Amino acid sequence: DVEPGKFYKGVVTRIEKYGASINLNEQVRGLLRPRDMISLRLENLNVGDEIIVQAIDVRPEKREIDFKYIP
């Protein structure tokens, strides 16, 4: 289970102007929005990149997770 405040290694699977889709595994994925990137710009991400993200909002009833990137 993903817990708010914990850090996870994820893989960038899609990049859109509203954010990047991050997969932690086949069943768990979430969104990294541009506003939640401290020192990383969306255009510097590539599909397949592995990054460390922090879960900031977990809504299991909607199967949604928001991530934050902290270098």
Rank of each mutant, 00 (worst) to 15 (best):
Q27I: 12
K62D: 10
L24K: 00
L32M: 05
R59G: 06
R14P: 00
P71A: 11
A55T: 05
F67W: 07
V28A: 05
K68P: 03
E26Q: 12
K6S: 06
P4T: 12
N44C: 15
V47P: 04
F7P: 03
G19A: 09
I51F: 03
D1M: 14
D36F: 08
E64W: 12
V11H: 05
V12I: 13
E3V: 15
N46F: 09
I56F: 09
E61F: 05
K9H: 10
E64C: 09
K9L: 12
N44Q: 15
V11T: 10
L42T: 04
K9F: 08
I22W: 03
V47T: 03
R14W: 09
A20R: 01
I52G: 00
I38P: 09
R29L: 10
P34Q: 12
D49Y: 04
E16I: 05
I65Q: 03
E64F: 10
K62E: 10
T13A: 08
F67L: 09
A55V: 15
G30T: 01
V47C: 05
I52N: 03
G19K: 04
L45M: 06
D66E: 08
G48S: 02
L24G: 01
S21Q: 15
Q27V: 13
V2A: 03
D1P: 11
I65R: 02
I38D: 12
L31V: 10
L32E: 03
I70L: 11
R35C: 10
L31E: 04
V2W: 07
M37Y: 03
E3H: 11
I52P: 00
I56A: 07
N25L: 07
N25Q: 05
I52S: 03
K6V: 08
L45G: 01
K62L: 14
A55H: 01
E26C: 12
E3G: 04
K17Q: 12
N23H: 13
N46S: 14
R63Y: 12
V58P: 04
L31Q: 06
L42I: 12
N46L: 10
T13N: 03
R41H: 12
L42C: 08
L40V: 09
Y18K: 12
G30Q: 02
V47M: 05
I51K: 00
R63Q: 14
D57Y: 11
L31S: 04
S39I: 09
S21N: 09
V28I: 14
G10P: 00
V12H: 00
I38E: 12
D1R: 13
G30P: 06
L24S: 01
P4C: 13
P60G: 10
I22L: 03
P34N: 06
P60A: 11
E43T: 08
L45Y: 02
G19D: 03
K68F: 09
Y18S: 11
R14D: 05
G5Y: 06
E61R: 08
N25R: 06
Q27C: 12
V11Q: 05
I15S: 01
G48D: 03
Q54M: 15
V53A: 01
I51Y: 01
A20D: 03
V28W: 15
N25P: 03
R35N: 10
T13F: 04
T13Y: 05
R33Y: 05
R59P: 03
L24C: 06
Y18M: 11
P4V: 15
G5S: 04
R14I: 07
D36E: 05
M37T: 05
E64Q: 11
I51P: 00
E64V: 09
I38T: 11
I15G: 00
R29N: 12
L32R: 01
Y69N: 04
D1S: 13
K17C: 14
K62C: 10
Y8D: 00
R59Y: 07
M37L: 07
L32I: 05
N23Q: 15
N25Y: 07
S21I: 15
I70C: 10
E26W: 11
T13V: 11
F7Q: 04
D57N: 15
L45E: 00
D57S: 15
Q54E: 06
R59C: 07
R63I: 08
I22H: 01
F67N: 02
M37K: 03
Y18D: 13
R35S: 12
K68I: 09
N44A: 11
P34V: 09
D57F: 12
I22D: 01
P4Q: 10
I51S: 00
R29T: 14
R29C: 13
V47S: 01
G19E: 04
G10A: 10
K17Y: 13
D57A: 15
V12M: 00
D49A: 06
V11D: 01
K17I: 13
M37W: 04
E43G: 08
Y18F: 13
V28Q: 08
P71E: 08
E64I: 11
D49K: 01
G48M: 02
V28K: 03
R29K: 13
L31M: 13
V28L: 13
I38S: 10
K9N: 06
V47I: 13
D1Q: 13
K17L: 11
L42S: 04
L31G: 03
D66F: 15
V2G: 05
L45I: 10
Y69C: 06
T13D: 05
E16C: 14
I70P: 05
Y69A: 03
Y18V: 11
S39C: 15
K9T: 09
G5P: 03
R33T: 05
K6Q: 09
V2S: 02
V58G: 03
E50G: 06
P71M: 08
L40M: 10
P60D: 07
G5D: 05
V11C: 07
Q54R: 05
R33A: 06
K62Q: 12
Y8T: 00
I56R: 05
D49M: 13
E61W: 05
E16G: 14
P4N: 10
L31W: 10
G48W: 04
P34Y: 07
S39K: 12
A20Q: 01
P34I: 11
V47W: 02
E50D: 07
Y8A: 00
D36Q: 04
R29Y: 10
Q54V: 11
S21A: 11
S39Q: 14
V58E: 02
P4I: 15
F7K: 05
V28N: 06
P34G: 08
I56W: 06
Q54D: 00
V53M: 03
L32P: 02
L42V: 07
E16Y: 14
E61D: 14
R41C: 14
V58F: 07
I52M: 10
L42Y: 07
G30D: 04
I52C: 14
R63C: 13
E43N: 08
L24F: 05
R14Y: 08
E26F: 12
N46R: 15
Y8E: 00
G19N: 03
G30C: 11
E3W: 09
L32C: 09
K68E: 04
I65H: 04
D36S: 04
I70D: 13
L24R: 01
P4K: 14
P4G: 06
Y69L: 06
I38M: 09
Y69I: 04
I15V: 10
N25M: 07
D36L: 03
V53K: 00
V12C: 04
V53D: 00
F67D: 02
Y69F: 11
I65P: 03
R59V: 05
E50Y: 14
L32F: 04
K68N: 05
E43H: 10
G48T: 01
Y69K: 02
P71H: 07
N44L: 10
D1H: 14
S39Y: 13
R35I: 10
N44I: 05
D36I: 05
R59Q: 06
Q27L: 13
R59H: 08
V58C: 09
L31A: 03
I51H: 00
V47A: 02
K68L: 10
N25E: 05
E50W: 15
L42M: 08
I52K: 03
